[in-house]
Design a protein around this nucleic acid. Structure first.
Lengths: 228, 228
DNA sequence: TTCCAGTGTTGATCGAAGTCAATTCGCTTG
DNA sequence: CAAGCGAATTGACTTCGATCAACACTGGAA
């Protein structure tokens, strides 16, 4: 919430790598940097709620942001998890509508906020900004469409296996890596209850997947690929 | 596939209403109209397949286009249904990648094709085109995110009830309308097997929903809303 | 170290929806 | 009009995953 925070080197770096900035010319880049307002975020802090007027786009600089929807009974369904460099709520780029979803910090971190109104003004004058926006939206649309298909086609162990294969080092027969966040968050991202994720992991043991805390060890990626 | 077809009045009208064109200035409009290549499409005709180089964006002028994904076993999962005015495959706007999904004509109709390369060139020079693209992508991203949440939060009868309420006249206590396409297509759109859609309809009978062929009659929208 | 709270795991049960098979419906075509 | 075909429905069965509850593990604070 601290408006006085200035962009440090680390924050600039993350921004520069983000899909919004990475394709810009120097001038546009400076223009947008100018607009960024930094905030640190606390675990579980709400960043915006469904129905609120949508005026700001958020770029995650550190930590993770969970975007979810509530039903009438108060149950939550995660829609997407955003990490460093990701733009949250890009679907509200056209200003003047309410947020369609809720966003919450999954852990402590740092974000940059951009006024959508100013962003759109800038995009109207500088094609590279508009194009970068289109690019980034297209990417998010792509992953989101793929998520729909995956949900409908694959069982829980299959979804987990796919996630592991996408997020481990590409080379070699075996691999090991650390989950970037809590298992309950991963469960939500995959559209599962935490219990279902747990069961999926234990069923994947017979395919050479070993889990200790956040550490994942895969004995044979080929074997795992056959699960999908 | 007939490249000689020229834009008739009806086709121009649909294009003008589409989210890509509706926000453009006259010059940009003329430029894009110029690029449109018309084709008539036959039922079940494949428009593009997963993995093919993605070079064309498709705008539906008449009929419906089904976008779906195949799994290893050959099962299909529908991701989205596009109707007149909708832009298919907008997620491939950035050129040079393969199509991530399959598209197929659900019935006979008419489409306009645009080369993504030329489209992006035009967008790079004319901010209104780039902005229109961003706008449209944002919309599609929004609906797609909402689909994910809906899938995860609602049962089959609830999803059907929501669809009915969104697609019937807004005013009045009762309503009736025709489904725009086959039930099997609707089932896919809602992420259901046809049998599940059928059962959902018959369970909604007790909430005042009557179905005969494609004709839907809703006795009391309030009652139906309580299902969701 | 011990305690504690939050996180994750396991077990038992239940309900939703997918699948396969058998009819029935509704529309097109001769 | 009848015939015939694909679409839709219904039934029986099965599987997957949500839910609730009990328990175990982990990491931080006193």
């Amino acid at each position: 919430m601290n408006r006085i925070l200035r962009l440090g080197i680390r924050e600039r770096d993350v921004l520069m790598q983000s899909p919004l900035f990475s394709r810009l010319g120097v001038e546009s880049l400076a223009l947008l940097m100018e607009m960024a307002v930094l905030s640190s975020i606390q675990p579980r802090q709400a960043l915006f709620r469904e129905g609120e007027p949508a005026e700001q786009l958020i770029c995650v600089l550190a930590g993770y942001v969970r975007v979810f929807r509530l039903d009438a009974a108060g149950r939550e369904a995660d829609v997407q998890i955003y990490g460093a460099g990701d733009l949250v709520g890009a679907s509200i780029v056209p200003p003047g509508r309410p947020y369609p979803l809720n966003a919450q910090a999954a852990e402590g971190g740092m974000i940059a906020r951009f006024e959508t109104r100013r962003l759109m003004e800038a995009a109207g004058q500088r094609p590279d900004i508009a194009l970068a926006l289109a690019h980034l939206l297209a990417d998010q649309l792509g992953t989101s469409l793929r998520t729909i298909a995956d949900d409908r086609l694959h069982t829980a162990p299959q979804r987990v296996a796919r996630y592991l294969l996408e997020n481990c080092a590409a080379d070699g027969r075996e691999a090991s890596f650390r989950l970037p966040f809590q298992k309950s968050l991963l469960a939500g991202k995959l559209g599962l209850a935490p219990e279902a994720l747990s069961r999926a992991f234990s069923m994947l043991r017979q395919y050479g997947v070993n889990v200790r805390g956040r550490l994942i060890q895969i004995a044979d990626k080929e074997a795992l690929r056959r699960v999908c």
